[in-house]
Amino acid sequence: MTERGLPTFDELPSYKDLPGCAWEVWGAGDSLGTVNLLTDAVVQRAAEEEIRTGQRVTLDLPLQFFAQPLHGRMPTDHHAYNKPSGRKDDELHINTQASSQWDGLLHFSTRMIKAGDDHVLYGGIPEASLPVGVLPRRVTDMHPGLLRLGIHNWAQHGICGRGVLLDMVRFYEAKHDGKLPYEPCTGGVISTADLQACAQAQGVEFRMGDILLVRMGYLGAYKRASINEREELCARSANYVGVDASDDMKRFLWNTHFSAVACDAPSFEEWPPAEDARPLHESLLPLWGMPVGELFDLDTLSEVCAKTSRWTFFVASWPLNVLGGVASPPNAAAIF
């Protein structure tokens, strides 16, 4: 057991041959995963200690930031129209992962280990058992699996607590004469040792329930690119910087007891994964129930943190309250 009373990564049971399955940590039927760590006491302490000046920084990109979203996802369509008596309405048609996003518990299942295996979601729910297509509008008609794992559960709880920024861009640039050791838009890997070294350099000590934000440099590079270069980045095969998917990384993320992780790249982990590694998503979402944030806008946050020499702050994030939702814009802000 860790000093915080939770099992260590190596004490967790395995699911088939996948180590570190946390389905039993918060009890049968759990719908929150590691968001359970954001208790009233944890949130209250974070608010009391971190909110000092009231300065606020959004962590969301505009929904329309990507004219052609990554992975072939549908672009955001925004329709405005006139109503009688001088009124206007508007409608949004979005893919919830077309811009800044939380991946929810319905987004990623375990991969097939051998022929005939089920792909299972958090809690062992078979992915194939859940409906797809146009879903019911009435809660009474919804599949119980969607109600158990939908992102509305996080929306109704809130992903709020102490945020910690590990600014790998500044960390690496300080070590490498102002340069990154990778090209963020074409690949690169960040190790556990480097995350820990960055935390030490920033004077950060983690505590249970922290919301980990990692600035890797993808969005900064994307913003500096020309329109043609941006279109090429969105159209080509996915190769992105991210953390490694090793068991050491899993031990670090679980044993530190983060409530959620997020970054400014399209995938929190190096993508595609190394040939000999299973996706880190496979541990974070279906085995642990941990929110995974991607394409968070961390550049302004980095500037504020560097200017104030504060790498911790209060994070308030309220995903869309969509029953049975797979993912959501984070609707997140850092408050100092």
Rank of each mutant, 00 (worst) to 15 (best):
T8M: 04
E50V: 01
L180E: 09
A316K: 11
D10M: 02
V35E: 05
F66K: 10
F313P: 07
V132S: 10
L284G: 05
S100I: 08
E232A: 14
R148K: 11
A47L: 10
W271N: 10
P131E: 13
D177Q: 14
C185I: 08
G123S: 08
C305A: 14
D264S: 06
E48S: 10
T34C: 14
D77T: 14
D264M: 07
H143V: 06
P184T: 10
D40E: 14
I113C: 05
F336I: 03
M1W: 04
F66I: 09
E173R: 15
P136S: 11
I227G: 02
K114G: 04
R278T: 10
R52C: 08
Q156G: 00
G123L: 07
W23K: 06
L6T: 02
L149T: 09
D89G: 07
H281Q: 11
A98Q: 15
P272W: 07
P126F: 01
H107W: 15
G54D: 07
L323P: 04
K250A: 15
F171R: 01
Y240D: 09
A306E: 13
F66N: 13
G220W: 01
A332I: 04
Q68G: 07
V326S: 11
C185E: 09
V134A: 10
W271S: 11
P144Y: 03
M168N: 03
W271A: 06
V132H: 05
G27Q: 07
A174H: 10
D299G: 01
D210M: 01
V42N: 04
G187I: 07
N36L: 08
Q101V: 12
L147E: 13
W311T: 03
P329V: 14
I51F: 09
L301Q: 00
I51D: 08
L280D: 06
L12F: 01
E269Y: 07
K83C: 09
C21Y: 02
C263Q: 02
E91M: 14
G209S: 00
C198F: 04
K16F: 01
L38M: 06
T312V: 03
V292T: 12
A334Q: 05
E231D: 12
I94G: 05
G220Y: 00
H71A: 15
A115N: 10
S246L: 03
Q97M: 15
L32G: 12
L147W: 02
P62G: 03
G217E: 02
R207F: 04
R138C: 02
P329Q: 12
G29E: 08
L195K: 01
V261Y: 11
A197R: 01
D247P: 00
I159V: 15
F206K: 07
E24H: 13
S109N: 03
R148D: 08
P286R: 05
L106D: 03
L213N: 00
Q202W: 01
V120H: 03
V261K: 12
A327S: 15
M216S: 03
E269V: 00
A306I: 01
R52E: 11
L38A: 06
Y122Q: 05
